[in-house]
Amino acid sequence: MSASTIVTLPLNQSLDLQVSDRLRKKASRHMKERVIEFLLFGAALISVFTTLAIVYVLVSESWVFFQHVPLKDFLFDTQWTPLFDDAHYGIMVLLSGTLTSSAVALMVALPLGTIIAVYLSEFAPFKVREISKPFLELLGGVPTIVYGYFALVFLTPLLQKIYPDLPGFNLLSAGLVMGVMIIPYVASLSEDAMRAVPMSLREGSYAMGATRLQTSLRVVVPAATSGIASAYILGISRAVGETMILAVAAGMQPNLTFNPADSGATITSYIVQVALGDLPHGSIGYQTIFAAGLTLMLMTLMFNLLGYWLRKRFREVY
């Protein structure tokens, strides 16, 4: 026992002496690594600051707004005339435009997007899929101002041939084009969700003698529910937040209506309208756009929370 300790101790010590210089953490290298990590962390934090800044700007400006306008008026007044002498601030008017145009858009985008997703994921031959996916991406990349121009100068005149009473600015045409714009988002995300369903589930279904459609609708779509729900939520957020198509093609007159054949302003197009004018910083008109923005933000937040809930509720267990 004691002999062995006598032998090994000096050996360990001498080894220690030999290598310690080389193995010791170099302070300079260590510092450099820490500084770099800190910088990268700072970059990642920018996103958190962005969110905080959005909340801060919207809430602080809206706070001033609500000092002047009671919340009750904001929610229940049926007129939106903040720039008139007889000012009314009923957000319902702008909400009606937003909801109507979004409803039209979603009635186009959700069914068509889902059908395209099922078709591309389960039915389409490889070639068709390979061509369609990038094409959908291109479709999603077209600037919305261009879609707005298209709605105004192409689709509206076309619709007026069928329905001559349609005004030159209307929510219908804007909503329809917006729907086409949203199709790629819904289709692409839903398709990703469906393709993530393991092949073994499909094989299980086909082995029972199911057809493609039966397998798609009864096994693949239910298995991909949470992903499809996310796609829908994204589609809804896009519709509610879309601005230029409506600013160009739907007119910007505030109008409490749920009739898509009317013209109308939305929350977003109102913000654009005010920004185009020359409102002094700090005026009540200037603050209305932040109150409108806050409403929009709360709506998208609500949809996102709904999305989280749906994802949790329908999380895939394969």
Binding site: S200, G204, M208, R218, V219, P222
Partner: peptide, 27 residues
């Protein structure tokens, strides 16, 4: 429909026990 199959890894559908079995009847 005449020759059915059981796979290497159990692959129940993301449905209830009942619906899993009922599926081959429903199709």
């Amino acid at each position: 429909m005449r020759i059915s199959m059981v796979f290497q890894k159990p692959n129940p559908f993301p449905k209830s026990v009942f619906e899993n079995v009922a599926y081959s009847l429903r199709v």
